[in-house]
C-alpha cells in the first residue's frame, strides 16, 4: 500500500494547458470557416435568384399556362402536376412504406431472408434516381402501357421514395422504447394490438416527419420524370391521372434551356416558388417533430 501511494505521489504532470487550449481554438475557427462557406454559397444563390425572379412573382405566374412569350407564361400546369404527383405518390407510398416498416420492425422473424431484404432496402435508398426513371419507363410507361401519364410518374416516384419511407418508419418505430411493448404484451395484448395502439401511435409524428421529408425530395426530383418522358409543354388543366403532365422542376429546366432572357428570369421566379414550397415542407416537419414527439 505505502509503496503504491508514494510512487503515485512521484508522478509530475506537464499540463501544457495553454497549448491544448490553442489547438482547440484553431479547430474551432476552421469549423466556423467551413460553415460560413456553405452559408455564403447558399446566400449567393438565393440573392441571385431573388434579384432575377422577384419582379416575375406576380399573379400571372400562378394562373397562366406556359407560352411562347415570357410575359404570358406561368406555372399553372406545373403546379397542378407537382401537387397531384405528390398526392398520388403519397396515397401509394405511405401505406406501403409504413406497412413494410412495421412488418420488418415488429413482426418479421429474424432470419437470413429478412436480413437480405433489410440490406437491399438500405441499398435502394442510395440508388441514383435516374435508375428509377429507367425502371419507371420500362415498367410503367411501356410495360403496363400507362404512357407518359401522371400515374406512371407517381408510380415511379413511389419506387423512389419507398425505401426512404421504410427506413424512416423503422427508425421511428425503433425509437419507441421496448419497455412500452413489454408493458402492453404483459397486459395480455397481442402483437398486432401492441403495434396498432402503441408503437404506431407513438411513432406517428416521426413517421409523418419522414414522409414529409421524403415528399420534399420527390417534389424536387427531375431526372426520373424526364426519363419517363414528362418533359412536355402543357397548356391545359390536368384532366385525370392518365393525362400527360409536367412538374415544377421540369418547367424550370425547360425555361432555362430557352434562349430568351425573360424565360431565364421566369425560371428564377419558378425556383423561388419551388424553394418556398420545399422550405415550408421542411418547416412543417420540424414543427411536427418539436410539437408531437414524446420525450420518454
Amino acid at each position: 500500500m505505502t509503496a503504491i501511494t508514494s510512487s503515485l505521489r512521484d508522478i509530475t504532470f506537464e499540463q501544457q494547458l495553454a497549448q491544448r487550449q490553442r489547438r482547440g481554438k484553431i479547430l474551432e475557427i476552421a469549423a466556423l470557416i467551413a460553415i460560413l462557406l456553405g452559408i455564403a454559397m447558399l446566400l449567393t444563390l438565393l440573392v441571385d435568384v431573388v434579384i432575377d425572379g422577384l419582379p416575375w412573382l406576380r399573379p400571372q405566374l400562378f394562373t397562366e399556362f406556359p407560352s411562347r412569350f415570357p410575359e404570358k407564361s406561368g406555372l399553372r400546369s406545373a403546379i397542378q402536376g407537382s401537387i397531384w404527383l405528390m398526392v398520388f405518390t403519397s396515397i401509394m407510398v405511405i401505406p406501403i412504406g409504413v406497412g413494410a416498416g412495421i412488418y420488418l420492425e415488429e413482426f418479421a422473424p429474424r432470419n437470413r431472408l429478412t436480413e437480405f431484404i433489410e440490406i437491399n432496402i438500405a441499398n435502394l435508398a442510395g440508388v441514383p434516381s435516374i435508375i428509377y426513371g429507367l425502371l419507371g419507363l420500362g415498367l410503367f410507361v411501356r410495360g403496363l402501357g400507362l404512357g407518359r401519364s401522371l400515374i406512371a410518374g407517381a408510380l415511379t416516384m413511389t419506387l423512389l421514395v419507398l425505401p426512404i419511407i421504410i427506413v424512416t418508419t423503422r427508425e421511428a418505430i425503433r425509437a419507441v422504447p421496448r419497455s412500452i411493448r413489454l408493458a402492453a404484451l404483459a397486459l395480455g395484448a397481442s402483437q398486432w394490438e401492441t403495434a396498432r395502439d402503441h408503437v404506431l401511435v407513438y411513432s406517428m409524428p416521426a413517421i409523418l416527419t419522414g414522409v414529409i421529408l421524403a415528399m420534399s425530395r420527390a417534389i424536387g426530383e427531375t431526372a426520373p420524370l424526364i426519363t419517363i418522358g414528362a418533359l412536355t409543354y402543357i397548356a391545359f388543366d390536368l384532366r385525370g391521372p392518365l393525362d400527360i403532365f409536367t412538374v415544377l422542376p421540369i418547367q424550370i429546366f425547360n425555361w432555362v434551356s430557352l434562349p430568351q432572357k425573360g424565360f431565364h428570369d421566369l425560371a428564377a421566379a419558378g425556383i423561388i416558388v419551388l424553394l418556398v414550397l420545399l422550405l415550408s415542407m421542411n418547416a412543417l416537419a420540424i414543427w411536427l417533430r418539436n410539437r408531437l414527439f414524446i420525450r420518454w
Binding site: 413489454l182 408493458a183 397486459l187 395480455g188
Partner: peptide, 27 residues
Amino acid sequence: VEVRRRIGMVFQKPNPFPKSIYENIAW
C-alpha cells in the same frame, strides 16, 4: 397472450403508456 392476462407483470423502470392516466388503465 392469455397466459399474460392471467399472470401480469410490473417492470423495473416504471413504463406507463404516454397516454392519459385514465387510458393507461382503460386500454
